[in-house]
Design a protein around this nucleic acid. Structure first.
Length: 387
RNA sequence: GGGUAGAUUCCGGAGCGGUCAAACGGGGCAGACUGUAAAUCUGCUGGCUAUGCCUUCGAAGGUUCGAAUCCUUCUCUGCCCA
């Protein structure tokens, strides 16, 4: 068992904000396992590297002997977290939420230690609340407190709607902290407000308020906006190794430095050529979610990209009913489960994206003779081998 | 409850009754360049086996040879006043 001071050093590493170090130290000094809360919103099923920043931190707590409390916000998902949104979120159905929660756990345990994790659904207590209990809960908070929140303030300033149920979100999430008697709550910096509400609510119940620990938000592949599925700038943690590797290779040099620090806790070696440094980074990340062998394989594939024969590509059987290039390419996209409209495909062809063994094919109506083994390149990322 | 403004293609936002699949910007995609990166430049960005056809401008009706544009009703939202 590490000393409280040592633990504090490890736990605060890489954090964006801790409120406060002194409080955390005091709690650690009690020598009992802390209850560390992480609330998750099962609004989309797939976890990505952005989520992993916080999960990695939670695992550190586990490694130091603390108790992880993973709250699945099945109830809160019905509200929709207004964080970072300029618009109201559409609500999800009960079935979608439960299915998402299921996949979430499966994926989260690639990082967390299952045996040291307590999982609770916040619907357990909220679905039982009567309306008068809801009113009483609301009475613990003032409108002014809620309106301090940046998102709400901005929307009001811009004459955009803010629905009353959205204002409930921080209250509801904060109440979770009371229910699970959290000692520490983790979250992204965007969750600061919500976590603080949890502290306030705990105080109103005479509890020792939880320590707030915020982790930096990871930028998405574009390097500007936060990583999120809806912006399609994410790397999913269950993505195939090759896919993951390719996505990481597409980031800018600046972003590479940030990913290194936030995802694997290392600095990029400035003496190394950026390409090599990036390959190393990509391989390390792949290794973490797949295996060292998979990472090697992904690296090899990447290096062999020019040499088409050396790379494994999905096989593609020519369609029976179409002989024209347009029809063939469309079928190829469909076989990769990325169906595109005829107009999209026509555009790609005319713009020179389609290549057969390195030769551009740009006439959608032509009827190219394809023989088995030839490689049809569809766009930057996708190629298929003719079966 | 009263008054007023608005709802346009992924987003923002233009759109004299015909020349509107709808300006412009953002985003996205493709090409060139490169380190198969970023930045930059160029093109594309509703659908259709396609010099044309079909479906779009909150919804439903109507006026008209012709409607995103005019009229009616409805739905939704903002703002001001109570």
């Amino acid at each position: 068992m590490k000393s409280p001071a040592e633990q504090l050093e490890i736990l605060t590493r890489g954090t964006a904000k801790v409120l406060s170090d002194a409080e955390l130290l005091k709690k650690l000094e009690k020598g009992e396992p802390l209850r560390v809360k992480l609330g998750v919103d099962p609004t989309s099923p797939d976890l990505h590297l952005g989520h992993s920043v916080v999960l990695e931190k939670l695992r550190q707590f586990q490694e130091l002997g603390h108790q992880a409390v993973l709250i699945i916000g099945d109830f809160t998902a019905q509200i929709g977290d207004p964080t970072g949104r300029s618009k109201t979120r559409p609500p999800l159905s009960r079935e979608e939420i439960l299915a998402n929660a299921e996949t979430y756990q499966e994926q989260a345990f690639r990082i967390l230690d299952r045996d040291k994790t307590e999982i609770v659904y916040n619907g357990t207590w909220f679905n039982k609340m009567t309306f008068s209990e809801v009113i009483q809960l609301n009475a613990r908070v003032t409108m002014q407190q809620m309106l301090q929140r940046e998102d709400f303030k901005n929307r009001i300033a811009k004459d955009q709607e803010v629905r009353l149920h959205e204002i409930q979100y921080p209250i509801v999430q904060g109440w979770d902290s009371v229910e699970v008697r959290a000692d520490v709550e983790l979250g992204g910096t965007d969750q600061l407000f919500n976590i603080l509400v949890g502290r306030d609510l705990q105080k109103t119940k005479g509890m020792d308020p939880q320590v707030v620990m915020c982790l930096p938000i990871l930028e998405g592949l574009d390097g500007v906006q936060k990583m999120s599925k809806s912006l399609n700038n994410y790397v999913g943690i269950t993505e195939p190794a090759g896919e993951m590797f390719g996505k990481i290779m597409s980031i800018s040099d600046d972003l590479m430095a940030r990913y290194a620090v936030l995802l694997i806790g290392e600095e990029i070696d400035p003496s190394e050529h950026p390409v090599e440094a990036k390959k190393a980074l990509a391989a390390k990340i792949v290794a973490r979610y797949h295996s060292a062998e998979a990472a090697d394989q992904a690296l090899t594939n990447w290096n062999n990209r020019g040499k088409l024969d050396a790379v494994e590509l999905p096989e593609f059987s020519l369609p029976a009913d179409r002989k024209d290039l347009l029809g063939i390419v469309q079928a190829a996209f469909a076989s990769l489960e990325e169906p595109k409209s005829g107009s999209d495909v026509r555009r790609l062809i005319q713009q020179g994206s389609i290549q057969l063994d390195g030769e551009k094919l740009s006439d959608p109506k032509s009827e190219p003779a394809l023989s088995p083994g030839q490689v049809l390149k569809l766009n930057k990322k996708r190629s298929v081998r003719v079966a």
